[in-house]
Amino acid sequence: MSIGEMQAALSRLYVDGAFLDVFCMDSHQALRHYFLTEKEAKALAQIDHEAIRKFAQSLRVKTWKRFEYAYRLLYSVNRPRIFKYYLRFYEIRKMRPNESFYGATVELGEFLEDSILGDAELPSYVCDLARYERLFYLARYQPRPASIPEVSAIANPERDKPEIAEALSPESFPVLRDGVEVALFDWDMSAIEKALDEGTVPPAGEKGRHYVVFHRLEKLGRAKKFHVSALMQELLSLCDGNRNLLAIAAELETKSEKTDLLQSVQNGVRQLGRLGLVEVRTA
């Protein structure tokens, strides 16, 4: 008996399209590297080719459905084209029994970003879109730490009282909360997502510097994303726990050549606190 070899051959038939094609043309040739008895080889050769093809197709599509929601916007841009890239991924990245889809979904996003670069049949923004959806997926499904150490937060709408946010002063030291990531995109992902959700063609627009904040929430599967202005991104980058609001305002005034930004910075940090993106330490 070589049941393991039979199963190996069958599994490959289900997931390897080229191998299945060879098998359908010449099963003896396709199976020559497997240690099969004559009876087993004969049994495999008599399998209904059409049934295997249908099963293999079903498996491909159902596996895609596991990925599709993570890259639903990208898929809506050009379904046949994106599915073609998925099939390339499917050929080289075998799923393993009982494997979580988390790692494979992230890998698929990276694969798509690399593969669709320069594809003239797809809009210019698709690489950014693949990365945008991958980062949002990561924010939602990245394993959470067992416990997050608490720093005195200025506000967390899901947990804290609003009046704590009012305690913010120019001497406060804001710091980004765990799970907050800022990413730069060439295209306005907010406008693109809105257009694709509405079933319309995203505005042509021009390349620029567009910032998105991804916020991993405590509950697995939950995250938020925000479109932020360039100055808000600068403000976020300065919330490192080592600068107080006075220092941050001074740096932003230098960078932006604007004056009297302290009050605006204070309001901005308060807003970030209310959204749960920033917490504050006192000197």
Binding site: S190, D197, K224, K225, F226, H227, S229, M232, L235
Partner: peptide, 13 residues
């Protein structure tokens, strides 16, 4: 868009 603008994107709300 104000200087320190931030807007939530998507369907979470």
């Amino acid at each position: 868009m104000s200087l320190f603008d931030i807007r939530e994107i998507g369907l979470e709300v």
